[in-house]
């Protein structure tokens, strides 16, 4: 627990530093300070993708081995994935409001990520709605595997379709911003792993 709180302090301190002093490009079309949202949005989105991938892996493992521990990890990872996914979508909406002109644009990435999030909320709802514990674990593991189809769609939607995401505005980032972004991703990922360990204990 002590290790988790140390990691959280580092993670939050870095997030605050990035928001207050992080690099942003000089663009006059809109308030370019909104670029600082990237330092928070990207780690949350990657944590969400990683969390749902873990749910897939441990759901398969549960179906193969029927080990209670695997089911617990799959479930806890889905809960964390939903929390981080909510953060990724809302921070993305705040960015979109400034850069694209409105909070919600039915952009392929926005829509596909919302669908993924709804699929995993359905996973939790389904799990809680079945009173028989063994049955609930097996059915939710099957759902945990099938819900994963939304993740590659969400990830590839910005590349495969004509998407606003990452393409508008096409603005190269500085080396300094990549370093700060990488640090945020690494510390956020460390917090995610520590939280998952505490959750699924």
């Amino acid at each position: 627990m002590k290790k988790l709180f140390m990691l959280i302090i580092v993670n939050v301190a870095l997030a605050v530093y990035s928001v207050l002093f992080g690099w942003y490009p000089q663009i006059s079309l809109f308030d370019a300070t909104c670029y600082r949202i990237l330092y928070l949005h990207v780690p949350m989105a990657w944590n969400m993708y990683f969390a749902f991938t873990l749910t897939l892996i441990f759901s398969i493992a549960y179906l193969l081995k029927e080990n209670e521990k695997y089911d617990k990890i799959a479930f806890c990872s889905a809960v964390l994935g939903i929390l981080y996914g909510f953060g990724a979508i809302t921070s993305g909406m705040l960015w979109a409001n400034e850069v694209w002109g409105s909070y919600w644009n039915w952009d392929p990435r926005q829509t596909a990520t919302l669908m993924a999030l709804l699929a995993y909320i359905g996973y939790i709802a389904l799990r809680e709605s079945i009173p028989d514990v063994e049955r609930s674990r097996t059915i939710s593991a099957v759902f945990g595997v099938s819900a994963y189809v939304t993740i590659p769609i969400s990830y590839l939607s910005a590349v495969a379709f004509r998407s606003l995401h990452e393409q508008l505005p096409h603005q190269p980032l500085s080396f300094e911003s990549y370093v700060l972004l990488a640090l945020n991703v690494v510390t956020s990922f460390a917090v995610f792993i520590a939280l998952l360990k505490e959750f699924s204990r």
């Binding site: 627990m1 959280i8 300070t33 964390l80 909510f86 921070s91 939280l195 959750f199 204990r201």
Partner: peptide, 30 residues
């Protein structure tokens, strides 16, 4: 600075706080 940056930071911290609160409750429960 764009206000949405502060809101994003608040959401980010809130997510970590909620998750660690659940983790803390679980560890106390056990």
């Amino acid at each position: 600075m764009y206000w949405g940056v502060y809101v994003s930071l608040a959401i980010y911290i809130a997510i970590i706080a909620i998750a660690s609160f659940i983790a803390l409750r679980r560890s106390k429960h056990e």
